[in-house]
Design a binder for these strands. Structure first.
Lengths: 148, 148
DNA sequence: CTAAGTGCAAAATGTTTGCATACTT
DNA sequence: AAGTATGCAAACATTTTGCACTTAG
């Protein structure tokens, strides 16, 4: 952390251009590397990691830590950090590992509730709801059915 | 993930005993391994990881994800599963590290909301709300005041 | 006896680092 | 010219997995 970028390089530009082109999307460092490899416009992975981290410091990207095992996700926010009102929430399935990315007003309300009733200022960037997704719940139900 | 423990083994017992003896403390899987190595009572690290994950599922431990680069932290919370199906929620202060246990019906409602509107069955035992607690928010405000 | 847990070592994963080279200013 | 950034490959740290063996129920 704390990697202030000082020079404007070709890699930095095409990286920003790409990220800007996929807003509201979760992207991992690995995804970025793969994308550029496919495009032929290859960027070294070390550069990707270094630039990504720098862009987070500058507020251009938001970084989400879901789990130690899964890679960090980045999302283009263009210097406008979301205020808790419109934050995006994450649900992680304990079964299949799927990450669900929700923009839900009702969930945003819990931020307000925590603030007003418990004096706790929620940080949606860090918070992840763990549980079981629809698909896995369905296959669980099937399994139970069969074992009868 | 999803490691329901069914047998009572020696390793499981001494692991729980140890964790219970250091409540309100952050412990990583590595710390645990090292502790037992020092004690002579060695437990294989695979077992440590597996049991820890299982204990999180059971609500005995709470797991914290700080960053992808740093190891996950565990903390003994003693399996607060509450009759009447009302789960206990945890809020973790990012500033002072304080762990707040909440029993709040309104929060329980989000479980229902996630189920009904997003088909997601929330596991309150695993879920941690990250944010800033009242005290830290107050001292932050003070700091801002002073720097004027 | 069967299902589950253990331990070892090996693999997998995601991220970081050292260093020589190339680019920005 | 001085200061950064890049890219490669190697290093790292944490966590997971395969498999033969042991243990609990």
């Amino acid at each position: 952390m704390n990697n202030k970028t000082k020079y404007k390089t070709k890699q930095r530009d095409i990286l920003i251009e790409y990220l800007e082109s996929v807003p509201k999307t979760h992207i991992t460092a690995g995804d970025v590397c793969e994308h550029f490899k496919r495009c032929g416009t290859s960027i070294g992975q070390a550069t990707v990691y270094r630039q990504l981290e720098g862009l987070v410091d500058e507020g251009v990207l938001q970084k989400y830590i879901i789990d130690t095992a899964s890679p960090a996700c980045f999302e283009y926010v263009g210097g406008n950090i979301h205020h808790s009102g419109e934050a995006c929430f994450h649900c992680k399935c304990e079964r299949c590992g799927k990450l669900i990315h929700l923009h839900c007003e009702e969930l945003s309300a819990i931020g307000n509730h925590l603030m007003e009733h418990h004096g706790f200022r929620l940080n949606p960037l860090r918070t992840v709801f763990y549980g079981v997704c629809e698909d896995c719940a369905a296959s669980e139900a099937e399994d139970r059915e069969e074992s009868k």
